[in-house]
Design a protein around this nucleic acid. Structure first.
Lengths: 350, 350
DNA sequence: CTGTTAGCGCGTTCAG
DNA sequence: CTGAACGCGCTAACAG
């Protein structure tokens, strides 16, 4: 096929072993002059070593796998960039797989990654209730780190997450501090640990304020703008004028909306404004994530920011720790969310 | 290390060759009973074949490389999903590399991909003026397909693009049809073929309408929202009240803005509204790309849509054609853009 | 239908 | 300091 170390060896009048040595920059073992000659030949013949052969010989593939549930989610690219940032320093490659939120596809991808002998996997799981896919990795002792979404498995799993509970609490406390008492909470898909944690955070805020959590109007959406709109529409149906019927605002059965991601929050704002309900005057809205979109809509969205880039970076870093240390770390790393105050909430007194 | 076909062979009382045969589902060559026995052993020992070994033996890696200039660009994920869609059918894996818009990084990534013996590369180049990175691929006859951005090399290169010239013409013609005569055109970075083509498209529209192209106010930005704002601010400096000084609109030195991507168009709209210039009443704005953002800002953006998903899909398809056909196709595939009319342009008479 | 024998390209002992 | 020889795990002829 292409040029091999054998070709180089013959051309440079040395043995394959010597070529291999200069290839791997082995300090000792090769005379300076020989080394130079070999290098020159490699350049002249435009030699590129075979990764497959090296992988086979060394038992290492110098690459890791990433499985995410949805690359189109604006949150994903930021995490990927974080991952790449630490990968680069290690000279590792990245295998990308998109499970499209399906557990079966996720398992299939993991199987392929195992075959390719990736040295580790970063997994942003499609579901939180099922840990069957981890067996595939555990059984072959392939190191892995969960990212963004957790998996509830009755044992502690290595992973990097935003502190979703604290973040939700933070967002809702800000709402309560502004006088909100009747909250409409639109959570993410049921069954995700992320959703459970955020719901707990919301309740934390209510309990701390001494307000009955039963007063919260809850529902769960699918992270799309449309589901945010539907949520508000649903709450408002029969409670006021139809969208087209009136241009004056009126009093809705809630004074605040907390959504589990920015797209749904934006959908809520749209539905509200379509009914001429003032945001933030009549209803305040807080989202979650802080995607680029959040600052560009009108009014710009107040939201709980997740450190996406940092999450990717730390996940990769943790993975390398277990790869290098030869043992699977089990601890979860919780990164701090941050409240970004913009225009869908009223100014607070200082 | 792990379980190999030798282990399976011993356990199943057959030879490695037989194991290999069932592994590859060779129809002939193995008795039904033997096949079953081998499969059972493979399952029992939880066998996963070594990709590296297979790659080495077959000389194929069953994966391709993708190099993109910026994964954070909302346009990238859609193309990636398109690529994955056709990859899936072929059982190929995807190596992801982000060049972060730097030619040197791009070359480095390509070198690594060559080492890993990817069977093909999809390249969205950082620059359009330099074809030096293609030598790396040509020399080893690694098939490749350009995506989104072209490279001007004095020879025809395989690639999949939006018909940028036609798209720009389409957008500007729509503006002209609405009565626009003084256009402010904010192009993408200089030096990109994409920018050159769009500029040509803009001029096409003007010439077809018999208007002097010299009347166009041109500039180039870096695809960010900020550069869109700066562009408008720059045109307006000294031409009207400062942003804070007045809330009444006045007549700017242009009646329409065409931007080379949606983010810049959105920046332009923001700058305009900040100065209380009515969009689309006083100034109409048209963008390019049609990212999700475009439909969510206020007013929603009229824009020239690129078929991102389809582009990725077709690029991968074209790549497989040359991989399977063993010869590099040279033709460019131009996909049709589509005008999406929303709220930053005034209604047109039918 | 099945087993034997060579490689694939590189790393890695061991001698020399 | 260098070379010969073997092994990594699998596929691919060629025999039987």
């Amino acid at each position: 096929m292409s040029v091999t170390i054998a070709d180089i060896a013959k051309e440079a009048q040395v043995s394959k072993a010597t070529v291999s040595r200069v290839l791997n920059d082995r300090a000792e073992g090769v005379g300076a002059e020989t080394r130079l000659r070999v290098k020159e030949v490699m350049r002249r013949l435009d030699f590129a070593p075979s990764g497959a052969a090296r992988d086979l010989a060394t038992g290492k593939s110098r690459c890791i796998g990433l499985v995410i549930p949805d690359i189109v989610d604006p949150f994903s690219p930021l995490m990927i960039r974080g991952i790449e940032a630490t990968l680069r320093g290690h000279g590792y490659g990245l295998f990308l797989c998109d499970s499209e939120n399906e557990l079966e596809r996720e398992k299939e991808q993991l199987r392929l990654l195992v075959e390719r002998r990736v040295e580790g996997v970063i997994l942003n799981p499609a579901l939180s209730g099922d840990a069957s896919q981890l067996e595939l990795l555990d059984k072959r002792s392939v190191p892995y780190v969960l990212l963004d979404r957790g998996i509830e498995a009755g044992r502690s799993l290595p992973g990097v997450y935003t502190d979703n509970r604290a973040g939700a609490r933070m967002g809702v406390e800000y709402l309560l501090a502004g006088g909100a008492r009747r909250l409409a909470f639109l959570n993410g898909p049921e069954g995700l640990s992320v959703s459970r944690l955020r719901e707990a955070g919301v309740e934390d805020a209510f309990r701390a304020a001494g307000i009955d959590v039963a007063s919260i109007a809850r529902s769960s959406g699918d992270y799309t703008v449309e589901s945010g709109e539907r949520f508000v529409d649903g709450l408002l149906d029969g409670h006021g004028p139809s969208p087209a019927a009136s241009l004056v605002s009126y009093s809705p059965p809630f004074d605040s909306v907390f959504a589990a991601n920015d797209r749904m929050a934006i959908g809520a704002v749209r539905a509200l404004r379509r009914r001429a309900i003032d945001v933030p005057g009549t209803v305040e809205v807080v989202g979650f994530d802080d995607i680029e979109l959040a600052s560009l809509v009108e009014p710009p969205l107040t939201t709980v920011a997740q450190p996406a880039f940092e999450m990717g970076k730390q996940a990769a870093r943790m993975l390398f720790q277990t790869i290098d240390g030869k043992r699977q770390l089990k601890k979860a790393l919780l990164l701090d969310p941050k409240l970004v105050v913009r225009g869908t909430t009223r100014p607070r007194p200082i």
